Amino acid sequence: MSPASMDTISAPTGPEPVEENRVTTGDVAAPPPAPKAGRNLPAAIAVGVLLGAAVLVSLLTVRQIFVGIVAIAVATGTWELAGALKRGANIRVTLWPLLVGGQAMVWLSWPFERDGLVTAFVLTVLACLVWRLPGGAEGYVRDIGASILTAAYVPLFASFAAMLVVAENGAARVVCFLIVVVCNDVGGYTTGAKLGRHPMAPTISPKKSWEGFVGSMIAGIAAGTLAVVFLLDGQWWQGALFGAALVCTATIGDLVESLIKRDLKIKDMGTLLPGHGGLMDRLDSLLPSAVVSWLLLGLFIPA
């Protein structure tokens, strides 16, 4: 859920840019350059604050409401990813089994945890295989492969966030997870925008820089250490490892979604959130980080 791309390099990666104040014809000036972040930053911040407030309210009141928020995000993200696959590559995922199965994964992970999640995932895959049969052989493997990818990438990963909140101190576990991911985004964005010079993956995400990654790592480790120590009574080294691991998974998640969008030749997964694009454009770093958060916190601080 970053307010913008995590980190922006200032050195151009393509042709030399036109001077910012150059006049085109007559007295008509060229339009001002786009913001360095490539997003409407005030709108992005406002949306991020509203989403964060909704999550905090749910965690501080009735934790099942947080599971409902995850379920809504799963349905929206699945819909957006299915639409992007259709627009970009004419891939027809089995949408209805994915929507129903995704809800089953999220809600069954609350009372039954891993057993409920795995059962729902397997049944969703089977439903996808059967649902696509009437469409014939042409594109069957492609469509089923994309459907299983969607089932794993969105509802399966997101369900680990729902399982975080099951424990007695589940609200604190979710807050630790979200704080680190947000600090990763903010640290990377601010550092990359000011100091970014060396692209991390120029063919995938030209605006990401190694300097921004260092900023993310510093912010993530600091946030993880403080969050785990003060919210979960853990050790400082556990928090530091937790923060570093989430910075890595958040970065990988962002790069994976960037590569998917490049393959599909689209800019955003959707247009739902002003200043952000689609909801999937904000879930990219959260989804894999939820899995690692559940694993590490379960190892370091058993419920």
Rank of each mutant, 00 (worst) to 15 (best):
G101M: 12
V100H: 13
L129Q: 07
L99D: 00
Y140L: 00
T94R: 13
G83I: 04
R92S: 10
T94A: 15
V125H: 08
V130K: 01
V122A: 13
Q103V: 04
A127N: 13
R114N: 12
E113M: 09
P97R: 13
E138N: 01
L108G: 11
R92M: 06
C128I: 07
P97M: 15
L108V: 07
G83Q: 11
W107H: 12
A89Y: 01
A137R: 04
R114S: 14
L133Q: 14
V93L: 09
G83M: 06
R132T: 11
W131P: 02
G88F: 01
N90F: 01
L95C: 05
G136Q: 06
Y140V: 00
R114E: 14
L99A: 00
N90W: 02
L95T: 10
S109E: 09
V125G: 12
V125D: 07
V122R: 02
A127E: 15
G135S: 12
V130R: 03
E113Q: 13
F121C: 05
W131L: 05
L95A: 06
W110H: 11
M105L: 15
W107Y: 14
G88M: 03
L123M: 05
Y140S: 00
Y140W: 03
I91W: 02
L133S: 09
L85T: 01
G102I: 01
T119K: 02
L95Y: 06
V130M: 06
A127L: 15
G102M: 06
V118S: 07
E113W: 12
V106R: 06
L95M: 07
